[in-house]
C-alpha cells in the first residue's frame, strides 16, 4: 500500500507560536509533603516527534496529564499551537469487549479518514486481528490497536505514554517511522524509558530530572532519524550519553 502524507490534517503548525509551552507549573498531590513540580517550565518550539524522558516516578505521566488537561486547572500555564485537542494515550487502555476490534476501529474513525485508517492498519500489522475481540489480543497488539484509534482523531499534540510497550523492537521501529512519515506536521510527545529509541527517533527530548536538580528539565536534541536517512552511530551515541547525563 502506498504511504500517504496527511498534511491536510487540522494540525498545521503556527509558525508564530511554539508547539507546546508550559510555564511555571506548580503541582502537588494531596497528602504529600513536597510539590512534584514547583515552577516547571518547558517549551517545544516546532512540531515533530519529541520525547519526554526520565526515571520512573519523576512525574512524566502527571506532566502529560497536565498538558492534555486530564488533570484540570492548568489552562493558563499550558499553551499549544494548532487546532484540536491535546490527546493523551497510555498503554493500559482497553477497547470494550462487546464487538470486534475492527468494528470498534471503524466506529471511532471520523468521516473522511477511512483511507488513513486502512493505511495505518496495514502499516501497524493489524489486518489479521480485526475480527478478534480486544481480550483475545496480546498486550503488544492491544497497544497497537489503541494507538491506531488515537492517530485517527483530530489532535494538535498526541502524548504517547508508553504506547508501544510490549511491542517487539522491529515492529516498534516500523510504527514510529510510519507515524513520522504519515504525520510530518503533527506534534507528538513520546514517553519511553528506552534511551536508544528516544535518542534515535525523537527530534527534541525533554529530560525530566529529580527534584533536587536545577533546572528540573533539560532539552536534548535527538537524531530524529527518518527511514530513508543513513544513521550516524556516533551522533546517536552522543545523544544517548547526553540524555543519560542529563537524567
Amino acid at each position: 500500500m502506498k504511504a500517504k502524507l496527511f498534511s491536510g490534517f487540522p494540525l498545521t503548525h503556527d509558525a508564530q507560536m511554539s508547539l507546546l509551552s508550559c510555564k511555571d507549573i506548580r503541582f502537588q498531590y494531596p497528602g504529600t509533603k513536597t510539590p512534584l513540580f514547583d515552577g516547571l517550565t518547558i517549551t517545544i518550539d516546532r512540531p515533530g516527534f519529541h520525547a519526554l524522558f526520565g526515571p520512573s516516578g519523576i512525574g512524566k505521566t502527571t506532566l502529560a496529564k497536565i498538558i492534555s488537561g486530564d488533570i484540570a486547572g492548568f489552562s493558563k500555564q499550558v499553551k499549544a499551537s494548532g487546532k484540536g485537542p491535546c490527546l493523551y494515550t497510555y498503554n493500559q487502555e482497553r477497547l470494550p469487549g462487546w464487538s470486534s476490534v475492527g468494528r470498534h476501529v471503524e466506529q471511532s474513525t471520523p468521516e473522511g479518514r477511512e483511507s488513513l485508517r486502512d493505511h495505518l492498519i496495514h502499516g501497524f500489522g493489524l489486518s489479521n486481528l480485526l475480527g478478534m475481540r480486544f481480550s483475545q489480543l496480546s498486550m503488544g497488539q492491544c497497544n497497537r490497536v489503541n494507538l491506531l484509534r488515537y492517530l485517527l482523531q483530530d489532535f494538535r499534540l498526541l502524548i504517547m505514554d508508553e504506547s508501544l510497550a510490549n511491542v517487539d523492537e522491529p515492529t516498534r521501529e516500523i510504527i514510529i517511522y510510519q507515524i513520522k512519515s504519515t504525520f510530518p506536521k503533527a506534534g507528538f510527545l513520546y514517553i519511553s524509558h528506552n534511551v536508544v529509541e528516544v535518542a534515535r527517533f525523537c527530534d527534541q527530548i525533554i529530560v525530566l530530572r529529580g527534584r533536587h536538580k536545577n533546572p528540573r528539565t533539560r532539552l536534548i536534541v535527538g537524531q530524529n532519524h527518518q527511514k530513508s536517512q543513513p544513521l550516524d552511530k556516533g551522533a546517536l551515541e552522543a545523544s544517548m550519553l547526553e540524555i543519560m547525563n542529563a537524567a
Binding site: 492534555s68 488537561g69 486530564d70 485537542p85 490527546l87 493523551y88 494515550t89 497510555y90 493500559q92 487502555e93 482497553r94 477497547l95 470494550p96 469487549g97 462487546w98 471511532s108 489503541n146 484509534r149 488515537y150 482523531q153
Partner: peptide, 24 residues
C-alpha cells in the same frame, strides 16, 4: 477509566455508552 478515557477525551462518551461500558 481504561476504557472510558478514549471516549471521554474525544467527546464520544454519551451517558448511554458510559452505562453500557460499566454494565458490560
Amino acid at each position: 477509566a481504561d476504557i472510558e478515557h478514549f471516549y471521554r477525551i474525544t467527546g464520544r462518551l454519551r451517558w448511554q455508552l458510559e452505562v453500557k461500558i460499566r454494565a458490560f
